[in-house]
Design a protein around this nucleic acid. Structure first.
Length: 826
DNA sequence: CAGGGCACAG
DNA sequence: TGGTCTGTGCCCTG
């Protein structure tokens, strides 16, 4: 395949940073040497340059297999004269996709752009569903029609669970109503030629590069970069591919081999299985060169799949861990695990399950299957504690061999091996460490781990967090998440950082089976009173969000909904990202509220109160509720203000009510309300946020008028006077809570120009030190000593006097300076 | 040992 | 040279 000049075609999925660095690559033909240069100095420490290098390699790979390189061409003469006038419409021209005679018996279509449509109501649909999840990316799965897309990542995942490109092509061909477009077949074959060919296997602490393709083996051996990494004289050929035989995943009903066959049952009746060379060729690689080889394989467009032959690992000590006999894992969890252990080895990859569907148990079961040292990475210390508790709850592990490594607990386990639960920031921390935590890190880095469990894996692509991959030696990695989504494009990097997506559950299906709660979603449109709308229109974009959140009609709607649901005995959570609005709402309604500033003990107290007391059925939460608060009591969720268009946040919030304890009651329904100020930016954001959930099959109902709201007694802000008062109060309070007095005066005058809430007056954009938290009023605040410009100048003047180099005032420059320092040290 | 400082994520 | 705010975690200090 000739590489096209890609300048014009945007690469789907290439991260921004990757694209930037690619721009500096003069010519794609230089990649082999460029790929190698960064690798060596990356060896033991994952530096920033190292990960940039990685991003570049990833981008290179993604770019090579752009589906646009396999253009779909219509048969000549089929297009009519008119269609050329509707340019974008040519993509919708399916005239060349002739229906098969027996199309009524077949459940899906596939077009020339890799899009697959499945009739989910078709009697054949259940047969292909599992197959499609494996080979294609589910993009939208409402009730009746499912939409999938073939991408390189999905095909990568497919080959990694053991499907051959040929299998994929024949199966697609067999089940589609129309013939498989030739360019798609070509695309699949081409991807298969490269992906999944090379495996990096660890056997008995020795790393082997393994392939079934003899020619490829020769090519790898000849490669100058790789040949220096290999241990001479270790080429070996084994006659049979690894199988699932004899491996049982704990907690499953039967030997997992049976389940695995279920997946392939579609294929086996053809032929295959025996002919495409069961012999695997392998050679050993030096231990310290593993990452170099992996990077090199990526550069050669043969990304190496990491596999861990844990049953033949006799060097790392076994861990005494088993699921408690009573635990039975659910069918979909079993399916996840059968993908992971498909050929009897542990593969690295990502499993996507909705919140509350038992991600933790999947991770724990995987741990029980591998039975080696386990590292669990969690996002926060709270969730680390939860992981430990879950381990103890589900398994018979000796509590002394499981330990937490976070800032407040640093004791390693005592035995030969065990489970360590830690946080991302603990591992990635680059600054000076406390003595014992440094020792602990050394411990973590010095030994080999059987499995690394990455909780909330969607955070890993962040610049800092991706270091964990480099600094801990784990033979297999399992990422768990509910929302494999980021608003930036870095999510695709996970394919190479961790592994392909092994399984993605269907939310609707799970909720039909009663594993997660049924949810009614609604978007409530709240009109803005004229005086507010007026102020809103004149406000700067920044303060507009506050106006939206503080819309009195929204407040009334919220009040109404709370009253309504409280009368039904529901437990309600109200989310507001805007802390100021949160406080006003909660105080006004006399309800407890939690935000980042509330102390840990207070949080616990409030949560207990909410969960256990019947007098308290409503709780107000800021962003802290998005993650890691376990609120199984909640059944209704009201969203007052949110973070722009973050789909992840929306999904995660919905997840709060999915695990409702009462979900199995007859006819139980959870509710999710999103309050939106009419005719404001919120409308746009709201629709963006919902995309993910809509794709999962949730229907959002739009409510423009709440029934009998005007007849409800005691609504706040019912009169224009009250609303005006609110407007005034908003002004004064939001000013005085953060900013100094002088600016209050200015701000009052700034009403017309809309800068009133978060402007600091003076020079716009001068970044001062962060304003103190509202909980902790400082003396300086009281004395009005917060003149930003003054403080700022003084600070830098002090720095100068001290003889240090002038500290940059901006985050960006500070980061640059830090980076420079770090490099100097290395 | 609580809270400020700092760094980072989203 | 520029997005802002909020939340979280870790380290250090009074």
């Amino acid at each position: 395949m000739s590489r096209k000049q890609k300048a014009k075609s945007p690469t789907p999925g290439a991260s921004k940073s990757a694209r930037d660095s690619r721009a500096s690559t003069p010519d794609s033909s230089t990649w082999p040497s460029a790929g190698a240069s960064g690798v060596d100095d990356q060896d033991e420490l994952e530096t920033t340059e190292g990960s940039d290098e990685l991003s570049r390699l990833i981008a290179n790979n993604v770019e090579r297999f752009d589906i646009a390189d396999f253009p779909y061409t219509l048969r000549p003469g089929l297009t009519d004269m008119a269609s050329s006038y509707f340019q974008p419409a040519y993509k919708r021209d399916f005239t060349a996709l002739a229906l098969k005679p027996d199309h009524e018996n077949l459940p899906m279509w596939i077009d020339g752009w890799g899009k697959i449509i499945l009739e989910n109501f078709h009697w054949q649909a259940p047969r292909v569903q599992d197959f499609l999840i494996t080979v294609a990316e589910p993009t939208s799965r409402p009730t009746f029609m499912h939409e999938y897309k073939l991408t390189i990542h999905s095909l990568y995942a497919a080959v990694s669970v053991g499907l051959s490109p040929k299998d994929v092509v024949t199966t697609l061909e067999r089940f589609s109503k129309n013939g498989l477009p030739p360019n798609i077949a070509q695309f699949i074959t081409e991807c298969g030629r490269s992906y999944g060919k090379v495996k990096l296997v660890l056997r008995n602490t020795k790393y082997f590069l393994e392939t079934t393709d003899k020619a490829l083996l020769q090519q790898l051996l000849r490669d100058p970069e790789i040949s220096v990494c290999r241990v001479q004289g270790t080429e070996a050929t084994r006659t049979s591919a690894p199988t699932m035989a004899g491996l049982t995943i704990a907690g499953t009903k039967e030997a997992a081999g049976g389940e695995a066959r279920g997946l392939y049952s579609l294929l086996n009746d053809d032929d295959d299985d025996a002919d495409d060379g069961d012999a695997t060729h392998a050679f050993e690689i030096k231990d310290d060169k593993v990452s170099a080889v992996a990077a090199r394989c990526l550069a050669l467009h043969y990304p190496a799949l990491e596999e861990y032959d844990f049953r033949n690992d006799n060097v790392n000590p076994d861990l005494e861990i088993d699921l408690r006999p009573a635990t039975q894992i659910r069918s979909y969890q079993e399916r996840c695990l059968s993908k992971m252990f498909g050929n009897g080895r542990a593969k690295s990859g990502i499993i996507v399950l909705p919140c509350g569907a038992g991600k933790t148990l999947v991770g724990i079961t995987a741990a029980c299957t591998i039975k080696k040292g386990i590292v669990v990475l969690a996002t926060g210390s709270m969730s680390a504690i939860q992981w430990r508790d879950e381990f103890i709850k589900w398994t018979n592990i000796d509590p002394s061999s499981i330990s937490i490594f976070s800032s407040d607990q640093k004791t390693p386990f005592t035995g030969a091996t065990g489970v360590i639960v830690t946080t991302y920031s603990m591992v990635t921390n680059t600054r000076n460490r406390a003595h014992d935590s440094a020792k602990m890190m050394e411990f973590l880095a010095s030994r080999e781990w059987g499995l690394m469990l990455l909780d909330e894996v969607h955070v890993v692509p962040a610049q800092m967090f991706r270091r964990v991959i480099g600094s801990i030696k784990a033979h297999s990695k399992l990422g768990l998440t509910a929302t494999l989504l980021r608003e930036d494009k870095k999510i695709d990097d996970l394919n190479y950082l961790i592994g392909p997506k092994l399984y993605e559950a269907n939310w609707m299906e799970l909720s039909q089976q009663g594993h997660i709660a049924r949810v009614q979603c609604a978007e409530v449109w709240c009109p803005m009173p004229t005086e507010f709308y007026d102020a809103y229109l004149h406000a700067s974009p920044r303060s507009r969000t506050l106006f939206c959140a503080m819309n009195p009609r929204k407040f009334q709607a919220c009040q109404y909904l709370i009253k309504y649901h409280e009368s039904w005995g529901d437990k309600i959570i109200v989310f507001s990202d805007n802390v100021y609005a949160l406080e006003v709402y909660a105080r006004r309604m006399m309800k407890p509220f939690l935000y980042g500033g509330t102390s840990l003990s207070e949080r616990q107290e409030v949560l207990n109160y909410f969960c256990n007391s019947p007098d308290c059925s409503t709780l107000f939460l800021s962003k802290i509720g998005d993650t890691s608060l376990d609120l199984t009591e909640a059944t209704v969720l009201i969203q007052v203000s949110a973070q722009y268009g973050s789909r992840r946040q929306e999904a995660q919030r919905l997840g709060r009510v999915l695990r409702a304890k009462r979900r199995n009651e007859e006819g139980f329904n959870a509710f999710f309300y999103s309050l939106v100020s009419k005719d404001t930016v919120e409308m746009v954001y709201s629709s963006k946020r919902q995309v993910f959930l809509v794709d999962q099959g949730y229907a959002f109902r739009v409510i423009t008028q709440l029934k009998n709201i005007e007849k409800t007694p005691d609504l706040a802000f019912a009169t224009p006077e009250a609303r005006r008062e609110l407007l005034q109060k908003m002004l004064v309070e939001s000013e005085s809570s953060s900013w100094k007095k002088e600016e209050e005066k200015e701000a009052a005058g700034l009403l017309a120009d809309g800068n009133m809430f978060y402007s600091r007056g003076g020079k716009p954009g001068r970044k001062g030190p962060r304003a103190p938290r509202r909980t902790a009023g400082t003396l300086g605040e009281l004395s009005g000593g917060q003149d930003m410009a003054y403080v700022e100048q003084n600070k830098s003047a002090n720095k100068l006097l001290k003889g240090k180099k002038k500290a940059p005032q901006n985050d960006f420059f500070r980061a640059m300076a830090r980076e420079k320092d770090r490099r100097k040290k290395l």
